[in-house]
Amino acid sequence: MKVLVIAEHDNTKIAGATLNAVGAAQQFGAEVQVLVAGCDSAAAANEAAALAGVAGVVSVNAPYYRDQPVENLAVLVAGLVRNEGFTAVLAGGTSFGKNLAPRIAALLDVAPVSDVVSIAGVGRYVRPIYAGNVMVSVESDEPVQVLTVRTTAFAAASAGGAAAVREVVAGEDLAVSRLVGREISKSERPELATARIVVSGGRGLGSGDKYREVLEPLADRLGAALGASRAAVDAGYVPNDYQVGQTGKIVAPDLYVAVGISGAIQHLAGMKDSKVIVAINKDPDAPIFQVADFGLVGDLFETIPQLVDGLGANQ
């Protein structure tokens, strides 16, 4: 068996999710190689080569991989699988991986498996369905296993490897899509998906101004990332990349603080594996309290400033 992990990167740095995907790939107990397809992507390829457990890095460079259009990447990966005999292809369960993996699988005529949370062997997986309310065991005899893996379920590969980087020739340029631009949110805070503490706000905040005014001091005190419910994103309090849930980001921090969030199943799907959950809500019957380790019933506009003060005084 030979496993190929598709690196997500910006030509300079490897994304955190790729480290988790390498960690997941190691569960097969087989040779793991990492594909870094980009343009002038030597820095990213070298970073991949330095990961523990990586046997080799396949580096491909062409101008038409710079922005990693999914159509070109899928054709490239399908070609590598056929030419080099990879029997598994893994990507992190991020918007990048979810976009790409099914396209690769279709080109290879195999059924992909999404959002794997446990690997018991080749073709033996567990994945959540129904917004995480049900877990299903999946068996696959497909000759090439194509998976996305939930990043919170697998430990990240650490540094400590010294694999060789091998340059291979580029695949075809389909030229069917072109990147016009990216608006990437910039923040000094930890990344939401990997933060140790997350403070999340919902519709109870009432506006974007209030969201920032009330939650930013708390996140500052705790060194936390900021997240949100769908209602808060839809209402425009915060950008889309703040959303936690079935259709947003999946997080599993040590501490998740849900403020003015009711606890719809779609929201719980994204945070119920957090180690400790705190809920602050004025409605004592809000469903969020059913998953919260510590619930505080009260008006958030009074309790959060008190919490900020209290944390300051104690530190």
């Binding site: 918007s95 069917v176 631009g181 990349d241």
Partner: peptide, 13 residues
């Protein structure tokens, strides 16, 4: 498109 880091705009044939 909504991507993990924010938004991205593509042009497709």
């Amino acid at each position: 498109r909504e991507i993990d880091g924010g938004l991205e705009t593509l042009e497709l044939k």
